[in-house]
Design a protein around this nucleic acid. Sequence first.
DNA 1: CTCCGCAAACAAACCGGTTGGTTACTCACG
DNA 2: CGTGAGTAACCAACCGGTTTGTTTGCGGAG
Lengths: 194, 194
Amino acid sequence: MGDGQATRRRLLDAATAEFARYGIAGARVDRIAASAQANKAQIYAWFSSKDGLFDAVFVEHLSLIVDLVPLDATDLPGYAVRLYDAYLDRPEVVLLATWARLERVPTGDLLAVAADDVAAKLARISEAQQAGLVDPAPAPADVYSMVIALSMAWSPASVTVAASTDDDPAEHERRRTALAAAVRGAFAPRAGAT
Amino acid sequence: MGDGQATRRRLLDAATAEFARYGIAGARVDRIAASAQANKAQIYAWFSSKDGLFDAVFVEHLSLIVDLVPLDATDLPGYAVRLYDAYLDRPEVVLLATWARLERVPTGDLLAVAADDVAAKLARISEAQQAGLVDPAPAPADVYSMVIALSMAWSPASVTVAASTDDDPAEHERRRTALAAAVRGAFAPRAGAT
DNA sequence: CTCCGCAAACAAACCGGTTGGTTACTCACG
DNA sequence: CGTGAGTAACCAACCGGTTTGTTTGCGGAG
């Protein structure tokens, strides 16, 4: 008989696509089961509830959300551009995080469950500030929030324009250039500082 | 007898709160009717459907989404800070826009229906670039997207930290300062340019 | 001023499809 | 034969939407 772990895997994959597209309230358990070529009861056997399934999907993607692209505090512009490309390649990551924000955690730190990983990133930003590679004025947490925000300027959650892989490659290139330049200007050490 | 327009108004207000909090799929028509102290049938008399009600709420907020704060292309840092405060004061605006993006318009231009107003803003950015007040390298549309993205770094839709009015005032002030500095650095004309 | 008729506003019960969740049962394998 | 994977039918609550019947304000006829 079929392998339970394999079914679990298919359910997680199907759920990822479903939640990314429709959110928690909009997702349909039957649709997930069908798309995973499994039975609805399996979902409840493995994940207890629809919310439990979302939790499983979300924690599995947490490491991706946080470390889809390893932070390079010594090259924030390059980091931002790599994030732009990563979001283009893996829109589910942005979507899951945004749905979680809207439907689960209205205020405060969304990634509190991964506080350790985030803290490590902030420490590296702090080091880069002390090394004179990043403007030391803003708090590391604010630098991080702003870099992420800038990288997501054209993400699937943007309130202006959401990029898609169908866009003209030249357009992507234009955005990458603009993004890198903006990040460089925004966080480079100020002239006149030590 | 009660005024129809007044009922319509209460429905729109209640729907705004409901949609901002729960999104389209998560919103409950009964809850809106109850919270507006009206009857469910009125919703269908005035707005035809749940989706029609969301449309009405959204278009009513479109002008706010676009012009909650008038764009001052000659002072982008100040503009960004005013947006930060506006989002703090009117989180529904950000939330409605984000829900619309996630549940309605997965890619492309979210504000295509208000293309004229947006085009006017881009024109003013373009003027500021020609006047040497803004870095002329990036396309006006990209400047706009990035300024909005930066202003929303701590918005209720942020994937890092969402600000709330309960936050320490000093924290808000820290973010305003960091935001203004980042926008200044990101879009000021590059040294060495004319 | 009163009465009547009318249309818009309103209320509540109702309807049928959908949805998250359950159960009773079958099947393959060690 | 026992155990865990898999299935299909089932269920009760829910939810968007409709229907039916009632109330209210108002303009006009008497």
